[in-house]
């Protein structure tokens, strides 16, 4: 059941242990207070959204405590995204092909957004804002990288980039679609996502045939040219 520890997850644990070293060993406080605030923020997320004040208040802290997070709400959102990406490792995959696994994982990740309710829209607009775009893209990259890894993709040729780029676009588009989806269990979002994935694999197949054709003709043309100059 335990898959070979995913790259992303390993990196994260190393970071986490570094951080706990920095605080727990060198400060009188035994708990990592910023992390505690973020964890509480996640618990209160369905009720209070991305605001940090309810979290600090419920921990018995001054409202001012939230100001140690330089990006406020967005810091909670980033924390949420990291956790959601890490959670994908525990999805039980049924498909045998990498493409099928990718589809299952993307669906699982999209459906995890359901608990956000009305706050998904706010999250998407924060992610799109120019100020946070570099961080958003990093989170998105981590997500699709993890998905490909978990789907068992070991390719390391030039399509490494296109596969991640395309999946990132499909995921981001589906997530935006989701903010306006009222269908039960986000049926429309999932079918939107599937259409994009299918279109993409058709495109990939088509692209492959086209480039094969060009390659064949280029070689043929070269040979013809060579025979003519003889």
């Amino acid at each position: 059941m335990i898959r070979a520890s995913p790259r992303f997850f390993t990196v994260r644990t190393v970071q986490a242990s570094l951080r706990s070293y920095a605080t727990a060993h060198t400060s009188k406080s035994e708990v990592d207070l910023p992390r505690q605030i973020l964890e509480r923020g996640l618990q209160l997320l369905p009720e209070h959204g991305w605001d940090l004040a309810p979290a600090t208040r419920s921990l018995g802290l001054s409202d001012q405590a939230a100001s140690i997070f330089p990006n406020g709400k967005f810091d909670l959102l980033q924390f949420y995204l990291q956790k959601q990406t890490a959670k994908l490792a525990s999805v039980q995959l049924k498909s045998s092909t990498p493409d099928g696994c990718v589809r299952e994982l993307v669906h699982a990740r999209l459906l995890a957004n359901a608990e956000l309710g009305p706050y998904l829209g706010e999250a998407v607009s924060m992610l799109m804002s120019p100020k946070y775009l570099p961080y958003s893209l990093e989170q998105l990259h981590n997500l699709v990288d993890e998905i490909w890894f978990l789907a068992g993709d070991k390719g390391h040729d030039a399509t490494w980039y296109t596969r991640r780029g395309s999946l990132a676009m499909i995921y981001a588009a589906s997530e935006s679609f989701m903010t306006r989806d009222n269908s039960p269990n986000f049926k429309h979002t999932l079918s939107f996502c599937d259409r994009q994935l299918n279109a993409w694999s058709r495109f990939e197949a088509a692209e492959e045939s086209v480039s094969e054709w060009f390659k064949f003709n280029a070689i043929a043309a070269f040979n013809v040219a060579k025979s003519l100059t003889r």
Binding site: R19, S27, K28
Partner: peptide
């Protein structure tokens, strides 16, 4: 930043900008 932690404060990450 370390002196601040030694006084009993918690810092977020490095604790400075």
């Amino acid at each position: 930043a370390q002196m601040i932690r030694d006084a009993g404060f918690a810092t977020n990450g490095a604790g400075y900008e």
